[in-house]
Nucleic acid binder design. Structure first.
Length: 298
DNA sequence: ATCCAGGTTGCCA
DNA sequence: TGGCAACATGGA
């Protein structure tokens, strides 16, 4: 499928389109940096430069397979959108997020990173990721100065709670240190979980310190490729309570929200969630400021 | 200065 | 079960 332009680079088509910048800045991954016409980042242990060209990605030939898998270029966004319910709120978010893809991130990296997203702004999360990578991660080869792989569980376990705290993790340092230790010592096999069903993976992840239902669902979605997984954070909760479940007679509990989401958004609820989340963050910000205080909804 | 940030945990009734 | 405070740090 890929078209080789020359010995150096290759163009990879993205069925249903891709918006590289928005994909990398939509709050599912936190370490990519804009550089020139594209972005540099690390996929696993591999430094990568990618550039959007029309409805596809351009990258070095020897990175094609890695890039293709990471950006899920085998997934047809058109087909996913076709499964969405007819719903004006989702339609607007989907339109706004045209070309945003759910990545396939390495499991440990995704799990550890989302443990650090608890009660943190995206800019903080990026800073923490940068600190952890540069202090405890291996540098990647191939002329990518300043790029580091995400530290392995053993490396973070060895670093210890206090050292992690020094990376700006706050009270999350204890969680990450303990979970890193469990993973490093084989107390849980993150790779083996790929063979298990959603609920089993979710339960296994939730057994780790610092991992609750929201983080677990993020890992299911962004690392295990479970595209129906629907993480409910403060933004999504506002949308569900304030719009979709506004007239609900029942008390809107987390279970009620999860059940509604599964039923309403369907097989690719995770994509719907990401679009709703990113659209809300980008467009409600102004209203949030203008309204002077407090959530509009809730 | 006060509030909030892609929540989780432990404790209480 | 369901409600609620504590938990660190930093930017708006």
């Amino acid at each position: 499928m890929a078209t080789t332009n020359n010995n150096e680079g290759v163009w990879l088509p993205a069925p249903g389109g891709i918006n590289l910048a928005m994909t990398l800045e939509s709050g599912q991954v936190f370490h990519w940096q804009a550089q020139g016409a594209g972005f540099t980042g690390v996929i696993g242990r591999c430094g990568v430069y990618v550039e959007q060209r029309n409805d596809g990605l351009f990258c070095a030939c020897d990175k094609a397979d890695i890039v293709s898998h990471y950006f899920a270029l085998d997934v047809d966004l058109e087909a996913i959108r076709a499964t969405f319910p007819e719903d004006p709120v989702l339609r607007e978010a989907t339109c706004y997020c045209d070309g945003v893809r759910i990545l396939r991130q390495p499991v440990w990296e995704c799990l550890a990173t989302f443990m650090t997203t608890i009660q943190k702004q995206v800019s903080h999360i990026r800073a923490i990721s940068r600190a952890l990578r540069s202090r405890y991660g291996d540098s990647v080869d191939g002329g990518f100065d300043g790029l580091f792989a995400y530290p392995a569980p053993a490396e973070l376990a060895q670093a210890g709670e206090e050292a992690l705290r020094a990376c700006g993790l706050g009270y999350r340092a204890k969680f990450l240190a303990r979970t890193a230790e469990i993973v490093a010592s084989g107390g849980i096999d993150l790779e083996e979980l790929k063979e298990r069903g959603d609920s089993e993976v979710r339960a296994a992840l939730c057994s780790l310190p610092g991992v609750g239902i929201k983080v677990a669902n993020c890992v299911l979605l962004f690392a295990y490729g479970r595209l129906s997984s629907f993480p409910i954070d403060v933004w999504i909760e506002r949308i569900l309570r304030g719009i979709y479940l506004k007239k609900s007679r029942r008390k809107v509990t987390p279970q009620v929200m999860a059940d509604f989401a599964a039923r309403h958004f369907g097989t690719y609820g995770g994509y719907a969630q990401q679009y709703l989340f990113h659209h809300a963050r980008c467009t409600w910000r102004n209203q949030h400021k203008l309204s002077g205080r407090k959530n509009l909804i809730r």
